[in-house]
């Protein structure tokens, strides 16, 4: 009796889940497998070109040290942007969730979400206006400081980091905010009644309880930043060559889709490897 019940339940679950799985198949696995297929070809399989199966694209990564150097540069960029976003975003989320109340919270929240809703190109080019020499930032600083300042951040790694942090900050603020919201104020009051001061409460209670949110935000930032190409290209100028821009070049400029695909899969593997290495620490933090 109970066995047959469980069977119908399982069938029903399968029926209910199948649209989701079909969608996942169509949206994720099909394009991804197409790209995986491309990465083993010698040339794009359309436009009447000759192609055969080859491992050359992967071999190119190993034989050209520039790729690995650029990948390392991109990983470092990802780490810096993620770290900065967490350092800036978590305190913002804390203020939003635990300090401000009522109306002003909604207004501040809107300010946080705004970069999310603006077109990324608009966002990046507005930073270009602010950061370039004689730009808004340079002129302002020059006007405030009594001595002569020539501030030109444009086309520097700093510009890239600023642009990326601005784009991705909302992720960590949102995930941290949700995690902080879930912490009952009575927990903080209980800790205070037991004699704990602000810093102890932050270290022993708030950070551990918000850790899943912080980590989720960090992962959401790290992964796309390592592969980012738009911010490095526009804000970095000639110094903006990163792993992501090289991949983009293969698809857009050089029209070497197989190499671009292979480089993308290597990136995916490296990112997954980093997350796997970090996962014991992550698990410890979230327990």
């Amino acid at each position: 009796m109970s066995g047959s019940l469980a069977r119908t339940d399982r069938l029903r679950a399968l029926a209910l889940l199948s649209p989701a799985y079909l969608w996942l198949m169509a949206a994720v696995f099909l394009p991804l497998s197409a790209m995986a297929f491309f990465s083993f070809l010698s040339d794009v399989p359309f436009g009447g070109r000759d192609w055969q199966f080859t491992l050359d694209n992967y071999r190119a990564f190993l034989e050209t040290p520039t790729y690995a150097t650029l990948l390392w540069k991109s990983v470092k960029l990802g780490l810096i942007v993620t770290a900065l976003s967490v350092l800036i975003g978590f305190p913002c989320a804390y203020v939003l969730a635990k300090v401000v109340r009522g109306r002003s919270r909604e207004a501040l929240f809107l300010l946080v979400i705004l970069p999310f809703w603006s077109n990324s190109l608009v966002r990046i080019f507005s930073w270009a206006i602010v950061l370039r020499g004689n730009g808004i930032l340079g002129s302002t600083v020059d006007a405030i400081l009594p001595w002569d300042v020539r501030l030109n951040l444009m086309f520097s790694p700093t510009a890239i980091v600023i642009g990326l942090v601005h784009s991705y900050l909302p992720y960590v603020i949102l995930t941290s905010y949700l995690a902080l919201q879930a912490i009952d104020d009575s927990l903080i009051e209980a800790a205070r009644s037991l004699g704990a001061r602000r810093r102890t409460i932050l270290r022993r209670l708030i950070l551990p309880l918000a850790a899943p949110g912080i980590i989720a935000g960090a992962v959401l930032i790290f992964v796309p930043v390592v592969g980012s190409f738009m911010e490095p290209r526009i804000l970095g100028g000639r110094r903006g060559t990163y792993y992501g821009t090289v991949i983009e070049d293969q698809f857009v400029a050089v029209f070497n889709w197989p190499l671009g695909a292979a480089l993308s899969f290597i990136l995916l593997a490296v990112v997954l490897g980093i997350l796997a290495l970090a996962s014991p620490a992550i698990r410890r933090a979230t327990l």
Partner: peptide
């Protein structure tokens, strides 16, 4: 935090990230 009070909340407000011993020992740890 300096009034030396003990308080039991209506919802107990136990720290979910700590064990029972960790909860009870928190005030001593502080």
């Amino acid at each position: 935090e300096a009034r030396e009070i003990g308080m039991v909340f209506q919802n107990y407000a136990l720290f979910p990230n700590m064990t029972v011993a960790g909860n009870v020992g928190f005030g001593l740890e502080v």
